[in-house]
């Protein structure tokens, strides 16, 4: 993994709360960090080229946009097939995140996680059925965990 220097990290910290909504946002950041706007943009471009920044843009709040049914779907699939299946599930346009995570036996048998978002329960039920169809016989068990309350949500990565 490429090494970021302290200035790169300072830029990432400064942008996690959001770019300023002012005409020259990169200049505002640069002033705050003692850099030039050009430095800030070049370093962000570099991090984007390396994949350290996945994208730069508006981060929507699904819940506010009417997506009130947010399910964390979890599946138990054989490890031998998980990469192939995970890529197919991750490509579905209603899946916002799709991850392989470890099982935690005996309490937690699931190793594939896919976040789905729908405006109605029916939407989500259909989405879950689509995922189940892709997994087919490799689906050894599943569950859906709906969020009932968002207790904390911040884009701010204060741990870094």
């Amino acid at each position: 993994m490429p090494v970021l220097d302290a200035i790169d990290l300072a830029i990432m910290r400064a942008t996690q709360a959001g770019l300023p909504l002012t005409p020259e946002p990169y200049q505002s950041l640069a002033t705050q960090l003692g850099l030039t706007a050009d430095d800030v943009m070049k370093r962000m471009q570099y991090m984007a080229d390396l994949g350290i920044i996945r994208r730069i843009g508006a981060v929507p709040n699904h819940y506010k946009l009417g997506y009130r049914f947010n399910g964390m779907t979890v599946w138990n699939v054989p490890d031998a097939y998980i990469d192939e299946l995970g890529q197919k599930v991750g490509a579905l346009d209603f899946v916002s995140h799709c991850y392989h995570r470890p099982r935690h036996l005996p309490h937690w048998p699931y190793n594939l996680f896919a976040m789905v978002h729908g405006k109605t329960q029916l939407d989500v039920d259909r989405q879950i059925a689509s995922i189940a169809a892709i997994l087919g016989d490799h689906n050894l068990g599943s569950d859906v965990l709906y969020s009932t309350k968002i207790l904390k949500k911040t884009g701010f990565r204060s741990g870094i």
């Binding site: 993994m1 970021l4 990290l9 990432m12 942008t15 996690q16 709360a17 959001g18 770019l19 909504l21 002012t22 005409p23 962000m44 991090m47 984007a48 994949g51 350290i52 920044i53 996945r54 994208r55 730069i56 843009g57 508006a58 981060v59 929507p60 709040n61 506010k64 946009l65 991850y99 949500k153 911040t154 884009g155 990565r157 741990g159 870094i160």
Partner: peptide, 29 residues
């Protein structure tokens, strides 16, 4: 454009405008 983004931000329709970092590229989670 700025006014519209400010409105989206104030109404919490967007959480922010900024870089999105994939998990574990900076720090560990």
């Amino acid at each position: 454009v700025i006014d519209a983004f400010v409105e989206l931000d104030e109404q919490d329709v967007i959480t922010r405008i900024g870089p999105v970092i994939p998990p574990n590229r900076i720090g560990v989670s």
